[in-house]
Design a protein around this nucleic acid. Structure first.
Lengths: 243, 243
DNA sequence: GAGCATTTGTCCGTATGTATT
DNA sequence: CAATACATACGGACAAATGCT
């Protein structure tokens, strides 16, 4: 298909070129592209911005434009959200970093959802997650202190905190996925500028027997980091290929 | 919060102004804004594009910039996707329009998913959906002819086709939600330009007893038309407020 | 249908600001 | 500190789509 607009031609051309390039590979700069295709810097810039819109590259002021990687993140009835599992399935390496952790009192806005009175002592843990050193997610975890009084907040332990309340057969999960504009704290953590939408995964794990909340969390994930897929009910025979 | 960049100041100002304006209301044009705020057309344009990124307005070449409306679309275990229900719940009016309809043969790409051999006679129905006359969705439905030999394709009947196989207690639904770049046919139908991502809702309804596929569909929905929310498992006591 | 004004889309050249390396 | 690269902004021009006369 021939496009009459120059910057889309360039974008399509670049898109075809960078397919197969490793994530993080450097893409030509605006002046380089302007020179190469004989256009002004405006058109070259538009082309790179188009690639960014298509989630094919990430651009960082002062640094450059780099090939992006998007991993598949499937959530379903039988597969509750697991960051490490999703990243591993994509053949990438997951890394997390503790931003803040400590004990605090449950705010009123969350009390109802957790089924605990406001002011209840809880652990609050904020972490960020990487896929092959590309910033991807920001997570806020709430764990009632009486559920895990001696919660180990050492960096090593916090890595796998989503495994803590995961005693097979004893946990009942609730999960809600939407796509929205994160609060400022999450935006800062994800290094996104204001008004950029991201995946929001809200989650509550309860003890299957008592119904007591074990863990509540909100995760904000950059749209350029994951391709989120949510499945409801049982999958049909072969739900593999998707147009 | 004070921003050092002019266009974001203007965007924030406009965003505050248009809150509460009715959907479809006209926003000031680029030259008008440039004049009003004493900036060049580039800055005024950037401000309006910022509002478009935030899904607050829609811009149409030759026509202008207009206040957008986004309805909530909740899909959960207990609430299978229903366009008319979602639109009605938002207090808006739903309208659909038949794009094409006819009998054809099942393509190989879909055969596996439907559990029918390629070449099986099927009805194929393509429709677009509006929320208060704002283009929102594009849907492709596949219905095996032996399931509904005498399918009524009159415009009136096609309005409520998602109700056809909905005999309570006898239907088993499977559904998958993701966010991707639509194929060209859907892009054209949604009047989106290439590379713009949209919601993808894939759905298969089966007879609960026989497992026979009654209806398969793929719906592409503009991100600026709906705020999609997907819930897995049972909701907790009070999942109302969300930060 | 043709013609026209309006509005957004594309593109040029140039300049300055700001973040990264 | 300097070089590089992206971000913002100006002014100007023409193209393309829309809506009205």
């Amino acid at each position: 298909m021939t496009t009459s607009t120059r910057y889309l031609e360039i974008a399509d051309r670049l898109a075809a070129e960078i397919v197969g390039w490793p994530p993080g590979a450097r893409v030509a700069s605006e002046p380089e592209l302007a020179d190469r295709f004989g256009v002004g810097r405006a058109a070259a810039r538009s082309a790179l911005q188009e690639l960014e819109r298509r989630l094919l590259v990430r651009r960082v002021q002062g640094a450059g434009t780099f090939v992006n990687r998007r991993i598949e993140y499937v959530i379903s009835h039988s597969r509750p959200p697991s960051w490490h599992a999703a990243v591993a399935a994509a053949g990438a390496t997951a890394r997390s970093q503790l931003t803040s952790a400590g004990r605090t009192r449950l705010p009123a806005t969350l009390a109802e959802r957790l089924g605990r009175p406001a002011g209840t002592a809880v652990h609050r843990i904020v972490r960020i997650f990487f896929v092959d050193d590309l910033l991807a997610s920001w997570t806020e975890d709430w764990i009632p202190v009486d559920v895990a009084p001696d919660l180990d907040l050492a960096p090593r332990a916090v890595e796998s905190i989503d495994l803590v309340p995961r005693r097979p057969g004893r946990v009942r999960d609730w999960c809600r996925v939407s796509f929205d504009i994160p609060p400022v704290e999450a935006l800062r953590g994800l290094r996104l500028d204001a008004g950029v939408a991201a995946w929001r995964v809200e989650r509550i794990s309860r003890d299957a027997d008592t119904g007591r909340v074990l863990l509540a969390s909100i995760t904000w994930t950059r749209a350029d980091a994951v391709r989120m897929v949510v499945e409801l009910r049982d999958a049909p025979a072969a739900p593999d290929t998707a147009g």
